[in-house]
Write a protein that binds this DNA or RNA. Structure first.
Length: 570
RNA sequence: CGGGGCAUAGCGCAGCCUGGUAGCGCACCUGCUUUGGGAGCAGGGGGUCGCAGGUUCGAAUCCUGCUGCCCCGACCA
C-alpha cells in the first residue's frame, strides 16, 4: 500500500484526555478516532492490525477444532429472561425496544444465543463435543469507559462456547483452549501469563485469565517465585500460617480523640500497625439475622472486595454501609469501630483471627480498646479469606512466596458447567436414551484490547513498536527526494513491486515529504522494518535497512534486500 | 450514584479575574526557496467561544439552568 492512499494522519500532540500511552499513540498514529464516549472508529491503519490479530486467532481456533459462526449483535429479551440474566445484569446491558415495543438488548456476550442454538441443533451425545466461536462486535455500557479501546463500550471479541456430554470432555476442551490461547499470544510475540481467576458475573467454576504483562495494566497478578502458581490478585488466596499467641495484656478502654484512621492510631499511640484492625461494615445477605455484617482485616491489609462479595453472609453486590446506617446500628461512627460488643456478625480475615493483644475501635465515639484478645474479650469470629495478598506472602501451594506484577486481561476461559444449559433446558439424549444437560465452557479474547495491550507492552519515545505478526505493515520504503529523481522513483516502484510479489506487507511512503517527516511517521506508526532508498546509495547499488528497534541502519545490496526482508518476516 | 474539574478553529492552548465583538502553536491552502531526522519566508482559509436563559448600551468574559467530556471514589491510600 502507498501512504498516499492510506491518508496517513499523524500528530505531534495527543488529545488532553488520552491518559494511557496506547490511547495516545493510537490517536497520534491515526489508528483510531473517537466518536463518543467508549465508541471508536478503526481507521484503515488500525483495522489492518485488528485483521492480523483476528487471523491468528482464527487459525488457532480452527486448529483446535472450533467452528466459526456469526450470531446477531441484537438479542431478544426472552432468552435473557430465560437464563435469568435480564434481571441480574445491571445498566451495563444496553436495552431498548423495537417498533413493536418488544424488548431487546445489545449483546454483551452470547451464552444465551448459543445455548438456544445448541438446544435446537444438538440432539445426541454422539454429536458432542462441539465448540462454536465467532469474532464479533460486543456492547457493554460501562459506567466509566476509559483508556481508549482498552475499556471501550463497543469492542470486538472472539467468543467461543463449547458443549459436552461429560465434565471430563469439558475439562479436555478447556485444556485445548488453554493451549490454543497460549499459541495465539505466543504467535503475537506478546509477553503474557495465564492466571487463576474469579468467575465473576458470567458464573460457573474453574476459570483462567490470560494477561499481557505491562506496568500500566489495570489488573494485579500474584505469582509464586518458586512454582507455576499465578492468580489474579482478586482471586489469589491469602494464607496465614501463624498461630494465635496467648494474651499478655489486659484489655483497656482508651480515649482516642481525633483518631479516625489507622494511620492516626499508629502515630498517636505508638501502636504497631500489625496490632491494629480495620472494621468495615457492609450490607448482610439473607443468611444473617441482622441487616449489616462486619468485615475485619489487619490495619495494613486491603480488603479484597471480590472475596468479600463471594462470602455467603455478604449481600451481593457488595455494598458498604453509610455513616448513618453505621451510627444507627452501632452508636458510633466509622473510625471508632471494632469487634468488641459489635451488634452484628463478625467475619475476620485469617490473619486477623490469628492476632492477639490488638487494638481496635470500641464502638464508642472517640474510644478504642487496646490489648484485645479473641475468646477472652469477644467471641471468636467467623474466619474467611478477605484480604488482598501482599508481595512476600506465602504462596498458597506452599512453594515460595508471592510477588505482584501488573497485567492487561486479554483472554478469559471458563468452565461454565450446566448453569445455562439448566436454565434453558439444553439437553441431548445419552447412551440410555435419557435427556441429560450439556456441560458448557466459554472462551473469550478481547480482539480490540489485544491491539492496545500490544502497544502498552511495546513502545518507545518515538512511538509504537509492533510485533511483526500483528504489524499493519511489515516494512516501509522511504525514498529520499524522490520528487527530483525519476530514476529513484522508478527504482522505488520496482522495489515496492518486488516486495509485494514476495508476499510482504509493504508500505511505500510515496509522499513528497522531507525525510525527517517520513522517518518520524514510520516510527510513530510502528512499522518493524524500514528501507531507505536514495540516489546516493543506488549509485553504489546499495539501500539502507533498519529494524524499528535497531539504533543504526546498515547498508545492504539492492539485490539482497528483498531476501533479507523475507527472512525477517518468516 | 456521589464529589471535583473542564468545555474557545481538526489537535494543543491563551484570553475570562478587571465586559468593548477572539488570538497563538501545530495541522490545512497558495507561492517561492529548501530537501538524510517532524524546514524557512510571504500570503491565505477556517471559530454562532458546548446549549438555553438572564444582567448590561454591549457578554467568550458576570449570573442561573442544562448538556457533554475528563478525573476521583466508601476503611486505608
Amino acid at each position: 500500500m502507498r501512504t498516499s492512499q492510506l491518508q496517513i494522519a499523524t500528530t505531534k500532540e495527543s488529545p488532553a484526555d488520552a491518559e494511557v500511552i496506547s490511547h495516545q499513540l493510537m490517536l497520534r498514529a491515526g489508528m483510531i478516532r473517537r466518536l463518543a464516549a467508549g465508541l471508536y472508529t478503526w481507521m484503515p491503519l488500525g483495522l489492518r492490525v485488528l485483521r492480523k490479530i483476528e487471523a491468528i486467532i482464527r487459525e488457532e481456533m480452527n486448529d483446535a477444532g472450533a467452528a466459526e459462526l456469526l450470531m446477531p449483535a441484537v438479542q431478544p429479551c426472552e432468552l435473557w429472561q430465560e437464563s435469568g440474566r435480564w434481571g441480574q445484569f445491571g445498566p451495563e446491558l444496553l436495552r431498548f425496544k423495537d417498533r413493536h415495543q418488544r424488548d431487546y438488548c445489545m449483546g454483551p456476550t452470547h451464552e444465551e444465543v448459543i445455548t438456544d442454538i445448541a438446544r435446537r441443533d444438538l440432539r445426541s451425545y454422539k454429536q458432542l463435543p462441539v465448540n462454536y466461536y465467532q469474532i464479533q462486535t460486543k456492547f457493554r455500557d460501562e459506567v466509566r469507559p476509559r483508556f481508549g479501546v482498552m475499556r471501550s463500550r463497543e469492542f470486538i471479541m472472539k467468543d467461543a462456547y463449547s458443549f459436552h456430554a461429560s465434565p471430563e470432555s469439558l475439562q479436555q476442551t478447556f485444556e485445548d483452549m488453554h493451549q490454543a490461547y497460549t499459541n495465539v499470544f505466543t504467535r503475537m510475540q506478546l509477553t503474557f501469563r495465564s492466571v487463576e481467576a474469579d468467575s465473576g458475573a458470567i458464573g460457573g467454576s474453574g476459570s483462567k485469565e490470560f494477561h499481557v504483562l505491562a506496568d500500566s495494566g489495570e489488573d494485579a497478578i500474584a505469582y509464586s517465585t518458586d512454582s507455576d502458581y499465578a492468580a489474579n490478585l482478586e482471586k489469589a488466596e491469602a494464607v496465614c500460617n501463624d498461630t494465635r499467641a496467648e494474651p499478655t495484656q489486659e484489655m483497656t478502654l482508651v480515649d482516642t480523640p481525633d483518631t479516625k484512621t489507622i494511620q492516626a492510631l499508629v502515630e498517636n499511640f505508638d501502636l504497631a500497625v500489625e496490632k491494629t484492625i480495620k472494621t468495615l461494615i457492609c450490607h448482610a445477605s439473607d443468611e444473617c439475622d441482622t441487616t449489616l455484617v462486619a468485615l475485619l482485616v489487619r490495619g495494613d491489609h486491603q480488603l479484597n472486595e471480590v472475596k468479600a462479595n463471594n462470602h455467603p453472609m455478604v449481600q451481593t453486590p457488595l455494598q458498604f454501609a453509610t455513616d448513618e446506617e453505621i451510627r444507627a446500628a452501632v452508636g458510633a461512627g466509622p473510625g471508632s469501630l471494632g469487634p468488641v460488643n459489635l451488634p452484628m456478625p463478625v467475619i475476620a480475615d485469617h490473619t486477623v483471627a490469628a492476632m492477639s493483644d490488638f487494638g481496635a475501635g470500641a464502638n464508642i465515639e472517640d474510644k478504642h480498646y487496646f490489648g484485645i484478645n479473641w475468646e477472652r474479650d469477644t467471641d471468636t469470629p467467623i474466619i474467611a479469606d478477605l484480604r488482598n495478598i501482599e508481595a512476600g506472602d506465602l504462596s498458597p501451594d506452599g512453594k515460595g512466596e508471592l510477588q505482584i506484577m501488573r497485567g492487561i486481561e486479554v483472554g478469559h476461559i471458563f468452565q461454565l458447567g450446566t448453569k445455562y444449559s439448566e436454565a434453558m433446558q439444553a439437553t441431548v439424549l445419552d447412551e440410555n436414551g435419557k435427556a441429560c444437560l450439556m456441560s458448557m465452557g466459554c472462551y473469550g479474547i478481547g480482539v480490540t484490547r489485544v491491539a492496545a495491550a500490544a502497544i502498552e507492552q511495546n513502545h518507545d519515545d518515538k512511538g509504537i513498536i509492533w510485533p511483526m505478526p500483528i504489524a499493519p505493515f511489515q516494512v516501509a520504503i522511504v525514498p529520499i527526494n524522490m520528487k527530483k529523481s525519476d530514476t529513484l522513483r522508478g527504482q522505488a516502484e520496482t522495489l515496492y513491486q518486488e516486495l509485494k510479489q514476495a508476499g510482504i506487507d509493504v508500505l511505500f511512503d510515496d509522499r513528497d515529504s522531507r525525510p525527517g517527516v517520513m522517518f518520524a511517521d514510520m516510527e510513530l506508526i510502528g512499522i518493524p522494518m524500514r528501507i531507505v532508498i536514495s540516489d546516493k546509495g543506488l549509485d553504489k547499488g546499495m539501500v539502507e535497512f533498519k529494524g524499528r528497534t535497531d539504533s543504526e541502519s546498515v547498508d545492504i545490496a539492492r539485490t539482497d534486500v528483498v531476501a533479507l526482508v523475507a527472512s525477517k518476516v518468516a
